[in-house]
């Protein structure tokens, strides 16, 4: 008699425990699912971004300084892994895209450098001219009518000809100091043209997205 009376209670008890266990499994599954992260694609994106900004990357002048002229899809093709969808954007503009990546994005700060070409006709009243901005090299063009014997950059002789320097020359300058060119000899305004190549930089965010 007593065992009979407890049967519905056992059924209810089993139902309650089973329901609670099922709920617990669902919650645990959800917790695991939300804790799981796409570590593989994230690591790939971070590594690709790191490689693109390295000092020996095909895109950079030095670390974190991208050369604007080399920032092309063809130049990037060789630098990114070939077996995953990948997108590389610089400053919000997509430079290279293969497939349709929707995975994690690695964001890095970089500077995009562009060489400008600036021409200058020095007045030559005092034989010297200071280049307003730094440049690793300069092109000096001297007319045949001028009688310049020596050209110095910050007292270092870069061009010398006792019979007169004539023609177009590329000279290397210091990247670390402002350059003062000195033309020794006889020259007037218009005889000499100096072209220099200062660098203009602007900031850009490099974004690498990897993974489907």
């Amino acid at each position: 008699m007593r065992g009979q009376a407890n049967l519905p209670a056992v059924a209810v008890a089993l139902l309650v425990v089973t329901t609670a266990a099922g709920l617990a499994v669902v919650v645990a599954d959800g917790a695991f699912a939300s804790a799981e992260r796409d570590a593989g694609p994230r690591a790939t994106a971070a590594a690709v971004a790191d490689r693109l900004l390295a000092s020996d990357s095909p895109l950079t002048d030095r670390r974190n300084v991208l050369n604007a002229s080399r920032l092309t899809a063809a130049g990037l093709e060789a630098a990114v892994p070939s077996d995953v969808p990948v997108r590389v954007a610089v400053g919000g503009e997509t430079v290279y895209e293969r497939g349709d990546p929707t995975g994690p994005t690695a964001r890095r700060l970089a500077v995009v450098a562009e060489r400008q070409t600036v021409g200058l006709e020095p007045p030559l009243e005092f034989e010297t001219v200071t280049l307003p901005r730094r440049s690793p090299r300069a092109t000096i063009e001297v007319d045949p009518s001028a009688g310049i014997e020596t050209v110095r950059a910050n007292d270092r002789v870069v061009l010398h000809d006792p019979a007169g320097v004539v023609g177009e020359y590329d000279v290397r300058l210091s990247r670390y100091e402002t350059t003062r060119l000195r033309f020794e000899g006889r020259a007037e305004e218009g005889d000499v043209t100096v072209t220099y190549y200062p660098r203009r930089t602007k900031k850009a965010e490099l974004e690498v997205t990897v993974g489907a």
């Binding site: 008890a13 309650v16 425990v17 609670a20 919650v27 917790a31 695991f32």
Partner: peptide
């Protein structure tokens, strides 16, 4: 109260304790 119900209640408390650990 039926003993089975009491046991079930204790069991549910244990299960919920484990679940709370996950949540």
């Amino acid at each position: 109260l039926s003993l089975s119900i009491v046991e079930a209640a204790v069991g549910v408390v244990f299960i919920l304790a484990v679940t709370a650990g996950f949540a």
